[in-house]
Write a protein that binds this DNA or RNA. Sequence first.
DNA 1: GGTGATCGTGCGTAGA
Length: 747
Amino acid sequence: MNSRASGSSGCASRAFDRLHPTVQRWVYRRGWRTLHEIQELAVEPILNGDDCIVAAPTAGGKTEAAFLPVCSAIASAPTPSVQALYISPLKALINDQYRRMEELAEDLGLPVFPWHGDVAGSQKQRFLAKPGGILMITPESLESLFVNRGTRMKGLFSGLSYVLVDELHAFIGMERGKQLQCLMHRLELVIRRRVSRIGLSATLGDMGLAAEFLRPGGDREAVRLIVSTSAVSDIVAQLRGYRVSEPEGQPPAALTSRPGQACSSQGGSLAPVVEHLFEVLRGTHNLVFANSRSRVEAYADALRHLSDATRVPNEFVPHHGSLSKEIREDAEVRLQDTSRPCTAVCTSTLELGIDVGDIECVAQIGPPPSVAAVRQRLGRSGRRGGRPAQLRMYVQEPEITPETHPQDMIRAQLVQSVAMLRLLGRGWCELPRPNQLHLSTLVQQVLSMIAQFGGVRAGDAYGALCRSGPFAAVSPTIFADLLRCLGEKDMITQSVDEALLLGSAGERIVNHYSFYSAFLTPEEFRIECKGVMLGSLPVDTCLEPGGYLIFAGRRWVVDEVDDKHKVVYVQPAEGGVIPHFGGTGGVVADQVREEMRLVYEVEHEYPYLDEGARDLLDEGRREYREIGLAGRGVLPWGASVLLFPWVGDRALNTLTMLLAGRSLCACRAGVGIEVQRCNVAKAARHLHALAEAGLQDPLEVARRVKNKRTEKYHWCLSDELLTADYASSSVDAAGAARAVENLMASL
DNA sequence: GGTGATCGTGCGTAGA
């Protein structure tokens, strides 16, 4: 934290005066001359006990903005129970905040307890023996307290005054976010009163939605929005375009090589981008976001190879979620070490949480997954000294041949990147989808409530979780159906006095520690070399003894595969294949596709494009016109018809399902839909019929989808409930209707 | 004969 540059004498201000004298002294001792704007603004509403959202750029002093008034309030009225509960999505963040809070809390005589999976049992016992002050915890550990200390919850939290949620945006719209809302609500139910909630966030697309998330069903206006008005530093962006012989979307598994040979990625499609990264990033500290773990491995390997070939020390390290904790921490330490340059090639692991030090430049390879992600990633650069944030984007498009599909000819990846930069410039970013049922998480919460109380009446569970709780979108009928399903799977039983109890399957699940998380993690192999754990790979990866592997930025040969213990033993080698990590595609928003159409149709120059990118954009626009897309969305293509309605992925998928439901051979093709064995007249007839039929029932659409089991407790649900859950999360009937309208208008 | 394809997060207790 820097000292504030200000000429004012001391910190005197109305807000400062309201802080506890010990907190004031702590602020003086840090050498701060003034409070940050956000800290000034937060004091009053937090001391009033209002629900608040504190939004400010990274390193903008948000944590102090919340903790200075919170500590002031609770230090004046000590109780023998937790007074402030801090909830974080990351263990690393808890460790970080604990270190930052320790001294202030000690001055105030407030105990602070970190509590997560890596915290020693003895420390947890100390808290349970003498609870008080501030508890810093993950949602999963809080869930474990409800399950294992159900009867003690009231005593532990009876004096609770504040709940703080860090990185609020990381929860909104996720299963974990629904779980968090339940935990906050169940805490209030157990102590029988409202507790002030404070959400901390850097990136929020819509403050109203964030307010609704923080206090679901409450009055949005009652949530105080405390937003920093300090200018976000300027962005210096460059978008470079490349033509490659293989499409960028090529499965990375194709990047293979034999021992002694460079990976084909070296001479192939990665080469120009790798050479440019090598040239401009060496000598400084940077982050390169490569979108997938396979690509992180491919680029880290190629950059290491180029360093070796030019006989310079390698400055490039990989960082992603499948690498071991040790390898990731090594990369983090190297990144923070100012004495020697380092560039991390990473996935979204380095997007939030961990302090990455002073970053010169953020590079993005391929179109970013969302505008929100670019915003978050950019926040990692130009943090100090008011320098503008530096963004370098790289897009690779395939050479056009007679076989090239129109979806590649219009250079959609490049145009999507431009569209996203335009939206970023306007301050827009994606919103989570509201009103999702989240039935998998509801299953978890029902089981957790039974464990908490040793049994619960169905009506009480419905009241707590749905009627007055965060599952307001769940009707009594759906809830009753869900309980019936749980009964059939022996997850729950009903006692003679009608209380719900855990069944034998339910007992087994609730009593295992894996119960506490709301999300699912696939089974994995551990990758080990000479007793050192390198990381993990999904079990469906084909690994055979003698096979080569690129992992953790190095090359290996497989020694032995231990199927029983799920371990793969490897040794250093010269050859390698980029492994496949699995995963399903992301969701592009409606606004991004609409913006793409504008980029095609409005001849605007973008000064941040390099020659290659300008060339590709010109070519994309020319092809867009030549294949007849200007003002038109239905095109003949050989024996097929292509549809380009310029809507987001949910709407596009819904329309594809509706067309398939009319016995058409429809499938997604890039940013559009391909209908095989079809002509324009036939497509027009079907579109007309869909327009006539009006808005489709999302349940009818979802019913036809086969693989709907995607979340943790989906296996407990009936087809009908799965269908309802899928419809609420993935079907966009209104969007599909809009898509049909767009296409009809262009006919 | 075949095919596409994001990431990330988390974890008790009792007993030896």
